[in-house]
Amino acid sequence: MPEPSSAQNPGEAVGNAGAGGTMDLAATEAETLVPGRGGEPDPGDRPRSLWSDAWHDLRRNPVFVISALIIVFLVVIAIWPQSIASGNPLACDINKSQDGPAPGHPFGYDTQGCDVYTRTVHGARASITVGVCATAGAALLGGLLGALAGFFGGWWDALLSRISDVFFGIPIILGGLVFLSVVTSTTVWPVVGFIVLLGWPQIARIARGSVLTAKQNDYVLAARALGAGSTRILLRHILPNAVAPVIVVATIALGTYISLEATLSFLGVGLRPPTVSWGIDISSASTQIRDAPHMLLWPAGALSVTVLAFIMLGDAVRDALDPKLR
């Protein structure tokens, strides 16, 4: 690429180009091309995918950093609650019922005389398990069905939309009361199953919408014009461009699923003792709110922080992935 410092030459062309023709030759193809010349943001010296750009932004976003730290902490205590609360959440001493904080028991005791601190820490496991499993289930089921509906359209789309309308129509609390009251299991799985059942249509809608949007892009037409088949178009061109909104919605949904679990447990149809759960603790504390507010404060606070952290994370991820800013 000749530097324009050799401009002594091309300069001539302009000099006598009054008639309009002589300048045709001044710029050769090769010269026109080198990007970065003329100061256009140089494509940079490294390839930057949209994902790596998003990550670059996220690392600098305090909202993301804070919520991510909270979530990492929650996941750690969900997996190893003993690491910061070595007591047994089920070992209770009825004599200490509703006692305030004491040395070694900073959060005090609940009605049963159990240590609130230990129970709050151990309660994270149930909430995180339900949240993560329900989100994974709903995202897989909803994402798959929604993507297929968006991609193939036609009767398949119509059928799926009607089915998801049916599930949308079920009032979630009423559905929970009816469906879960017949279940006797004390594990988390019935609750997870119920949330997946009611949660997938929301994700399916988002997935369908973003697949429809991606499908309209010219690069999909270009791939078809090259003779690409449906599988290639779906896997190479549509899914990678449609997955971002699903991730965002799933992250935010994770937070709301955790609070849904707590709600159901509060109503007595979610998780049941002896499972330790924030919802159960909130439920049992709510009757004593005047006498022993600390019993409610800690599990409710933990729940709020957790839900908030996931919702903030979802927001931060959405900002980073929003293609309109690129």
């Binding site: 324009p4 401009a7 002594q8 302009v14 710029a27 026109t32 010349r37 003329g38 100061g39």
Partner: peptide, 28 residues
């Protein structure tokens, strides 16, 4: 056709001196 070589600069990186100099046939 006569084509002005190169690209317009980004407003973040306007070349020093005359902003048009990298694309200009008269530039020195």
């Amino acid at each position: 056709l006569y084509a002005i070589k190169g690209l317009p600069p980004s407003p973040h990186h306007v070349p020093p001196g005359c902003a048009f100099n990298p694309r200009c046939p008269l530039a020195r």
